[in-house]
């Protein structure tokens, strides 16, 4: 285990250490004193285990590939934005746009996520232990967003082919987002994701939301929705 003291080497020092990985080099890292700094552990391109001991700012784990990143604290805007693969686990809450445009991998937020969680997600799986703010799953293209708490206004607005599962209350659905039947494959998916996340919830308590596919091609009779 290599210790990276951010207070001493700065964000660039930390990131360059995580980017300089060659075969047989150290795979386990602990980042100390993250001090809420931005862009920590972004752009990793190797199967590393990274533990961050504290809170992080914007874009932690951005564009992650392969790495497992555990954040022992809260995370700022865009945690795991555009990640491709790997696993990011936030012990605390996250700010806006968690997992934005992420193409793959697994993002777990034990606490609450703010607005726009999973915005434009393109294949990532996200589990939120608490609730999410407004506009979550906006234009979500594919992947699964599992919300154990409540969801605020405009959930899944203009959603494409992603699935949103909510256990609690949904304040309001966004344009073209409807409640859909939870089929056995969906229950199996929820169970699997909850199990991998380590968050305890009953998979049968969730409802599913997805696209009504009414806005996929232009139609003047949908005028009210545009």
């Amino acid at each position: 285990m290599a210790i990276l003291n951010l207070k001493k080497i700065g964000v660039s020092g930390v990131n360059s250490a995580l980017h300089k990985i060659v075969e047989n080099s150290e795979k386990d890292f602990e980042i100390r004193n993250p001090q809420g700094q931005h862009s920590i552990a972004c752009g990793i391109n190797a199967p590393l285990n990274v533990e961050i001991k504290g809170h992080v700012g914007f874009y932690c784990g951005g564009m992650n590939k392969y790495a497992k990143i555990l954040i022992h604290g809260h995370a700022g805007v865009g945690v795991g934005e555009n990640m491709m693969s790997g696993y990011i686990h936030v012990k605390g809450d996250t700010s806006e746009s968690a997992g934005a445009t992420a193409h793959g991998g697994f993002l777990v937020i034990e606490g609450n996520a703010s607005s726009r969680c999973g915005i434009s997600m393109k294949g990532v799986d996200i589990v939120v232990g608490g609730s999410v703010g407004h506009m979550s799953g906006f234009m979500a293209q594919s992947g699964n967003l599992v919300i154990c708490g409540d969801a605020k206004d405009a959930l899944g607005d203009s959603i494409y082919e992603a699935n949103i599962f909510v256990r609690g209350e949904v304040s309001e659905l966004g344009a073209d987002c409807i409640e859909k039947e939870v089929r056995p494959e969906h229950s199996a998916k929820i169970s699997k994701l909850l199990k991998s996340s380590g968050i305890n919830a009953n998979p049968t308590d969730f409802r599913r939301y997805g696209s009504a596919r009414q806005l996929y091609n232009f139609d003047v009779d949908n005028f009210e929705s545009y």
Binding site: V11, S12, N15, H38, S39, C42, G43, G57, F58, Y59, G62, M63, V77, G78, E81, E96, S97, A100, T101, R116, I119, S120, F138
Partner: peptide, 20 residues
């Protein structure tokens, strides 16, 4: 999707610089 306004943009640019 993950930034609005010039202050956020500064942080976004920082992220892209760190990644590259």
């Amino acid at each position: 999707p993950d930034w609005t306004g010039p202050d956020d943009l500064e942080i976004k640019i920082h992220e892209l610089r760190e990644i590259s």
